[in-house]
Amino acid sequence: MKKTIGIALIGSLVFLGCKETKKQENLDMDSDPTYGVNGISPPEVMKEVEITPISHATAVLHWNDITIYVDPVGGTEAFEGQQKPDLILVTDIHGDHFSLETLEALDTEKAKIMMPQAVADKMPDEFTPQIDVLNNGDFKERYDINVEAIPMYNLRDEAKDFHIKGRGNGYLLNMGDERIYFSGDTEDIPEMRNLKDIDKAFVCMNLPYTMTVKSAAEAVLDFKPKQVYPYHYRGKPDVSDVAKFKELVNTGNPDIEVVLLDWYPNEDY
């Protein structure tokens, strides 16, 4: 009888210990600033990334109640109906990627803004507390998103002055289980071709500023993202043929899904 009581008592203590541990785990999650701040959810309930093309190189991403603006240009009217940004990524100094007027017009008071030094040099002092300067190879974590700055530059001699190596950034976002790449303005550089385990890749293609459809397709076939989104393709229609890009990718590797979004709603592409 004593042995039975002893076993029961031990079992009760273990059970209480388990309950206390579980309670403490929940307490830790509630008190951990990683969760419950800015709408961030625990990892086990993370949502899929929602992508909204705005125009050309500009996009809005929504993930776990976090809103990300990529290369915001076009003024406030371009972002009507969108949530305020928590994180802003700027790739380069050119006007189709960096618009100080847009950044000043938008409600960015609570946003963190990641940009290369060349862009930061053009920002007014009042933005300084919000800015994270990332140069090629740097990375920073904000809102449980790890952002890595990937080089972007031209290879062709006649185009090298458009995008000089080291000035601008492509970005690789690690968001939960997804790895999302934005090329920025670049050609099919080794740093792109050597990317691994990319879920979604946004790849530019327009001459004379970036690369041909053929070069873009060959790069994609090298690094094999699960999905590729052609963007930043405004230019001469005969050299920015996204249907041709899709054909080249699907012929080379049918497992890569080519997703065509409407980046130019007011133009005939």
Rank of each mutant, 00 (worst) to 15 (best):
R234N: 02
M192A: 05
N206S: 03
K246L: 05
D32N: 10
N250C: 09
E141T: 15
D125T: 13
I145K: 00
Q117I: 05
V37N: 13
A78D: 07
Y153F: 08
E20Q: 13
V90M: 12
F245Q: 01
G137R: 04
N38Q: 10
E257D: 11
L134W: 11
Y143W: 13
K122L: 15
E77G: 01
I88M: 07
N146A: 07
L195R: 09
I113E: 01
D161K: 12
A8E: 00
P208D: 05
R156I: 04
P230A: 00
N38D: 15
P151V: 14
K236D: 00
F127A: 13
L106W: 10
A57L: 13
E158V: 04
V133C: 11
D197F: 04
T108E: 02
D144E: 12
G95W: 09
Q83A: 15
K160R: 15
A219C: 09
N26C: 04
T76P: 02
K19Q: 12
F98T: 01
M1H: 06
M205V: 04
T108R: 05
L16I: 13
M192F: 12
T58E: 00
K122E: 14
N194R: 08
E44L: 06
N194D: 11
N64P: 04
I5L: 07
M115Y: 06
E141M: 08
A149M: 09
R156N: 08
E158R: 06
V49D: 01
G11F: 05
